[in-house]
Amino acid sequence: MSTTLAQVQQEVVEEFAMLGDWQDRYEQLIEQGRDLPLIAPEHKVDNNLVRGCQSRVWLHAEHRASDQPGAGIIHFTADSDALITKGIVALLVRVYNDRHPQEILDASTEFIDRIGLREHLSPNRANGLSAMIDQMKRYALAFSSVQ
């Protein structure tokens, strides 16, 4: 169970590399959305909306306390009202979920380019994608100062 963050990124890259046309790519993305750890209703609030996306994306981060299992890791949950956006956030959650803050802060975002998402998504969406990553890293930064 000790898969590293980089290994998960590599898994994602390989999954997308096997896909042919745009339709497969987007179907795969929509499929990812089904596996997303859904945000609890009480966290699906305006305060958790990620700014910079045309569709609505809610992202919640929970820092596991030292007396809990998985002490110190960040657990993300999310949702979106658009399926493709939900797929994108699910992909990000899959990569960054249940990691220590420093791992998230150190992680490269190069895999986004390697799965061809940035070039295939509209500038609006690409910005939304960057906004989601920024938001995750901001949580990691905030929690990294918590011992």
């Binding site: 745009w22 339709q23 987007y26 045309q54 569709s55 009202d81 658009a82 399926l83 493709i84 956006t85 295939h120 998504l121 509209s122 969406r125």
Partner: peptide, 20 residues
């Protein structure tokens, strides 16, 4: 169907529409 998803998939097929 969210208009944003629809607009994105239409764009993939070469069709420029406005969503939002």
């Amino acid at each position: 169907v969210h208009h944003y998803d629809l607009g994105t998939l239409l764009d993939q097929q070469g069709i420029a529409v406005r969503t939002g």
